[in-house]
């Protein structure tokens, strides 16, 4: 009888070990979970995606599943989200912060994000002309503001059609 119990315990522990391996394998194959949040709206909430291309201040980045944790500041530019099915969703972001968290999660906080087809190329041009005028002003604060606007608008110019 003693032996029987022992065997049972042994079998149990064996299965425990096997289960631990199984869950580990499951996490490794997990997809990248994207959360894309604006202050007033949530665009993606832990949705599984294939790849995300970020416009970072240090250059463009492509994030796939199992990326090491990073913190990146975004510059104005095009954010590309490639879904599991291979379709691409594009958003123009004005700036923000992207963080890859431990556990295969990518969270992006952007201040504003719009799809490229929501922009009007002509009004972008008008705004650029306006900002350039102000960038030549003598007031330092106005110049700084105009330069930030220009940075966003010039990036936007390539995107809007």
């Amino acid at each position: 009888m003693f032996r029987q119990t022992f065997r049972q315990v042994a079998r149990q522990s064996n299965s425990v070990v096997r289960r631990a391996y199984a869950t580990e394998a499951a996490t490794a194959s997990e997809a990248l979970k994207l959360s894309l949040a604006l202050p007033h709206q949530t665009l993606y909430s832990e949705s599984e995606v294939e790849q995300v291309n970020l416009p970072s201040i240090n250059g463009d980045l492509g994030i796939l599943a199992n990326h090491i944790p990073i913190v990146e500041q975004l510059r104005p530019g095009l954010l590309e989200i490639i879904s599991k099915g291979g379709e691409t969703d594009q958003y123009f972001v004005s700036g923000g912060l992207a963080t890859v968290q431990p556990g295969n999660k990518l969270t992006i906080s952007a201040i504003e994000a719009f799809k490229p087809d929501q922009f009007d190329a002509q009004s972008v041009k008008d705004l650029i002309a306006d900002a350039q005028k102000r960038a030549a002003s003598s007031d330092e604060a106005v110049v700084a503001e105009a330069n930030i606007e220009l940075e966003v608008l010039e990036a936007l110019q390539h995107v809007a059609k």
């Binding site: 949040a37 202050p39 007033h40 912060l97």
Partner: peptide, 11 residues
């Protein structure tokens, strides 16, 4: 919406 926005930071 703002709770989700803040979650990045909190995490």
């Amino acid at each position: 919406a703002s709770r989700v926005f803040n979650k990045t930071d909190a995490e």
